[in-house]
Design a protein around this nucleic acid. Sequence first.
DNA 1: CCGTTTATTTCGTTCCATCGAAAGAACTAA
DNA 2: TTAGTTCTTTCGATGGAACGAAATAAACGG
Lengths: 155, 155
Amino acid sequence: MPRRTRRQVLDELALAGRAHSTGVVLFHAALAAKQGLGPTETKALDLLERLGPMTAGEFGTRTGLAPASITGLIDRLEQKGFAKRVKDPADGRRVLVEYDPASSKRFAPHFMGFMKDLEALYEGYTLEELEVVRRFLVEVAEIQTEAAVKLNELP
Amino acid sequence: MPRRTRRQVLDELALAGRAHSTGVVLFHAALAAKQGLGPTETKALDLLERLGPMTAGEFGTRTGLAPASITGLIDRLEQKGFAKRVKDPADGRRVLVEYDPASSKRFAPHFMGFMKDLEALYEGYTLEELEVVRRFLVEVAEIQTEAAVKLNELP
DNA sequence: CCGTTTATTTCGTTCCATCGAAAGAACTAA
DNA sequence: TTAGTTCTTTCGATGGAACGAAATAAACGG
């Protein structure tokens, strides 16, 4: 008979998961605020970073914004130095929006302390344990992202 | 000599961490959108849920909003059924804002599938592994929340 | 009691992100 | 070359969330 039942451990894990999620959200919100970015801009930059350069039109469909709004959005991102417009060499009508990688470095100082703390944290785990954690994170990420997509498209 | 060096595992872990964070943010944003909540309202509800009932004034300082804005915010939350006003029995000038727990149940259906998938995921882990993951999540949550606080107060 | 202080709301205004419609620029095909 | 199509931007308008200042309501201290 284990000291804690599996159910107990699972419940505690769920609690830990909530706490962790809250931490993630708080951190992201704080970082966005520090960068002077609104919710839409944050989301947009995330898209650019993950999917790479895209046309203004595609940017619009992916963010769900009207064409006119996209122009304003790109204007703001450009003015704040997070993205830039590049004329599509193949088609002069199109404008490619691309993420400026320098912008991530610009805010690296804010990350440094956090990164250091994480590295220190890792010291308390064996290689095997880290591998378990990695697998868990990847699998949860997949489920969660899928759930988010379903939420968005369902109703 | 291990098949993968510790450094490699750590790098992969960092990558997994990023993917997971993205998933968390996407899911939260999708859920908020489905509930018809704006960024401020989401943040405010999170405060109420974590810290319990508080006066309108305290609510204002915690959210960083002006008194006039708080009234509107509470109005919206109340109208949407996520919170309610309660007269402070000890001081008639004050208004306590409290989270309505029923509102979380109201959106439970959207969680169900996600929860089921998570439970299924847990089946692939031993009790010891789940405990490792729990510890990791708790420790990271602490570091991350602390980092968020620092980000907010620093400049 | 009566003036003062504290807590919230009301009021009128401002700012900003978004929108629809139309204009402008560039490719395509006949 | 020109007519039609596609992509982005400009323009003017709208709505919502935030603000400061004044108004209201309740507690507190003389």
